[in-house]
Amino acid sequence: MSTISADTAQVLDAAAKWLEAGRKVAIATVIETWGSSPRPVGSQMAVDETGAMAGSVSSGCVEGAVVHEAQRAMRDGEPRMLSFGVSDERAWEVGLACGGKITVYVEPVT
């Protein structure tokens, strides 16, 4: 069972508020996990064009990279799939040292 819908409500409320304020917004969702990952499948984060965040997709390990990709998605209007894990050198750079692997789907709100 999951209680993530309460988190989702907060994330989507933040997204709606930012959109109301005329800002661009993207939503990131954990769609797959392997091994020990800090947030379960379905965890979400909203990002606006200024880099403001609501919610999380990890325990702070990959949020920086996700914000970067989210801002790119806002610019080109295209969703993208991001993978982070110990086998991925970039993941070490962004700090997913918890030993897990996650796939994050990032989509602009259009």
Partner: peptide
């Protein structure tokens, strides 16, 4: 995600109605 869909999801949550958002990972629809 279309803005209309964001509002539909928020409505379902505000009304405490169960729902599932399904994303075609090939097209993003």
């Amino acid at each position: 995600m279309k803005r209309r869909m964001l509002e539909a999801v928020r409505r379902a949550q505000a009304d405490k109605r169960p729902a599932a958002l399904v994303t075609d990972l090939t097209t993003g629809l």
